[in-house]
């Protein structure tokens, strides 16, 4: 089984927990690197391995305050990579969490949902 990822959030970079054993996947906080690739490429490599032999049901939670446009592209890449799970016959779902008054994050979730083939739930949190 893949080694779990547990990255603590900073001012500029998000927290990431990818834990296949506990079946818990979450990206949270704010993301504003100048070049999103430096942070995300290792995550993408991890996910590329994971999708070869994923859990029966994977639920990826996003709980973000803010992200920049360099990151938007990387999040999309992550989602596109996860679409490979659909080909294995196993289940996957994205849960996009947003605070009730946070229209910006809600709209961005809707946008990502519209370009993704994954089951994609927008979930308001209080």
């Amino acid at each position: 089984m893949l080694k779990k990822i547990d990255i603590k959030p900073t001012d500029d970079l998000p927290g990431v927990i990818f834990d296949p054993q506990k079946n818990f996947f979450m990206i949270f906080g704010r993301i504003l690197p100048e070049d999103g690739r430096i942070f995300f490429n290792p995550l993408l490599e991890w996910v590329a391995e994971y999708v070869k032999d994923p859990n029966d049901y994977t639920e990826l939670h996003f709980k973000l305050d803010y992200y920049n446009s360099s990151t938007a592209r990387m999040l999309t890449k992550l989602i596109v990579e996860l679409e490979k799970i659909l080909e294995t016959g196993k289940k996957i779902k994205v849960v996009w969490e947003y605070a009730i008054d946070d229209e910006v994050i809600k709209e961005r979730g809707e946008e990502l949902k519209s370009i993704s083939y994954l089951p994609f739930e927008l979930r308001v949190i209080s």
Binding site: E34, D35, G36, R37, N68, S69, S70, A72, R73, M74
Partner: peptide, 8 residues
């Protein structure tokens, strides 16, 4: 070159 795809 920086991967931002003119999105900004």
């Amino acid at each position: 070159e920086t991967g931002s795809a003119g999105l900004g």
